[in-house]
């Protein structure tokens, strides 16, 4: 009875969840080091968008905020 209740063998689901977590961390590092990934493309796109936002006039900013909240 004890051996069943205090079973130290991890289930396949537990192993898969832990492994996925670790692989995701390693994969993130790989992606951040590389240059041509969807992540970097998006980052470039967003940097351009941030630059555009930075140059908006006060009226344009006000309109943008109103548009998001409507």
């Amino acid at each position: 009875m004890n051996s069943v209740i205090f079973n130290i063998e991890p289930s396949d689901e537990e192993i898969a969840a832990t492994l996925a977590e670790r692989l995701a961390i390693k994969d993130k590092e790989l992606i951040l080091e590389s240059r041509r990934t969807p992540y970097h493309e998006k980052k470039k796109e967003l940097a351009a968008e941030l630059k555009r936002l930075n140059n908006l006039s006060r009226e344009e900013r006000s309109e943008l905020v109103r548009g998001i909240n409507s």
């Binding site: 996925a20 994969d27 993130k28 990934t37 969807p38 992540y39 980052k43 967003l46 968008e49």
Partner: peptide, 19 residues
Amino acid sequence: MKHELFKALNKSIENLGNC
């Protein structure tokens, strides 16, 4: 934008073939 970046990161992770 942060959310879009997060989605793009996940797409990149998926492309690597592990998760």
